[in-house]
Design a protein around this nucleic acid. Structure first.
Lengths: 193, 193
DNA sequence: CGTTTCATGTAACACTTGTTTCATGACCGA
DNA sequence: TCGGTCATGAAACAAGTGTTACATGAAACG
């Protein structure tokens, strides 16, 4: 019943990753996936329905793929290094690019794209917070880490310079580990790692 | 001679800041600026010519506005704090949003938008590098600072949470100042931790 | 077999896109 | 006053947009 629909969904997903969603047009998309604009509307109701369906699928895949990677290397390296390695992998990079695109689109019309932002930067915040020991600065620290990954990833996408961006991340990790405790706490308690 | 053109340019610039450039359409733009698509093409040659002209003007304004702010508070606070305060100012924020938009657009078609990326993240790299003492880790450090500002700004644009993002930036500044020297220099190899 | 549902193709509809053509004033130097 | 740029308007053009109406073939089910 939804057999052909699933096939189309997979093909559309690949097309989204390759061409983005900002200037999406049904007729070229239909032709690229071996179908037609007519059938895309038939199976997904409308262009917006198609985008919604595909983006939900993308979000599910991203989370699934990342959770696998995160479990596998839970305490192997730092969580940030794990996430960085996963995101910059060539297989996963198109997802990041697409999520950036949607995030920027959502800045202008949140009612259309705001729903997909859960999987983006602020969505990872909770995940980061959960993997951190609670502290009065946990929120700032999580924001810091998330923003840094975001910025480095955008820089990597723009320049393709994996070495420089990775070096910057490693420098940050060193900074983070060298100073676990903020300047003014009650009384300098030893932090064990 | 180019009198009316300058008026139109100013109005278009404001429209760009308010509505973005991704889904720009000449007829609504013309109406919004008290003109018509016909005249926009007449004065700027084509839609692309208009975008080029307006983006160049925007870039000039951004650099001018920021250099003023930077001179005024050169060593007042840290350079990052100065830049952060300038960027998050409500008057300047639309510029950042537009530059993000163009940066993401440039990820998909660099031949159209790549030229405007000089004012964006990687463009600031040289500026940051110049304001830093030279060191073997200067490049990583500059990349780190630029990416962090980028990520935090994107997070601020998406969530509007100025307090949290600013706190994260301050935490980062503290981290940076607490560890000015990298781990492995010539002497002093007691970096074992 | 008849009927109903699903999948698909063709063609159209109403609309928007960037751009161009033609025409009309307005102003300005000669 | 004449000629010539400059600015502007109305309308059209070809192409592309999402979407829909109509028709058709196949397959499933009674």
């Amino acid at each position: 019943m939804t057999d052909r629909r699933n096939e189309l969904m997979d093909a559309c997903l690949a097309y989204f990753l390759a061409h983005g969603v900002a200037n999406l047009s049904l007729r070229p998309l239909g032709e690229a996936v071996g179908s037609s604009a007519r059938l895309l509307i038939y199976h997904f109701g409308s262009k917006e329905g198609l985008i919604t369906a595909v983006m939900e699928e993308i979000q599910a895949r991203v989370q699934a793929s990342f959770s696998v990677a995160a479990d596998k290397a839970a305490s192997d390296a730092g969580p940030m290094a794990v996430f960085w390695a996963w995101t910059t992998h060539p297989d996963n990079l198109p997802y990041a690019r697409l999520l950036y695109e949607i995030q920027v689109l959502a800045l202008r019309n949140p009612e259309a794209y705001g729903a997909y932002l859960e999987g983006s930067s602020s969505g990872w915040m909770a995940l980061i917070l959960a993997s951190m020991p609670p502290s009065p600065e946990a929120l700032s620290k999580a924001t810091l880490c998330a923003a840094l990954i975001d910025g480095l990833l955008l820089e990597f996408l723009a320049t393709g310079d994996l070495r420089r961006t990775t070096a910057a991340l490693e420098l940050f990790s060193r900074l983070l580990q060298s100073q676990p405790s903020p300047p003014a706490t009650t009384h300098k308690k030893r932090e064990r790692r």
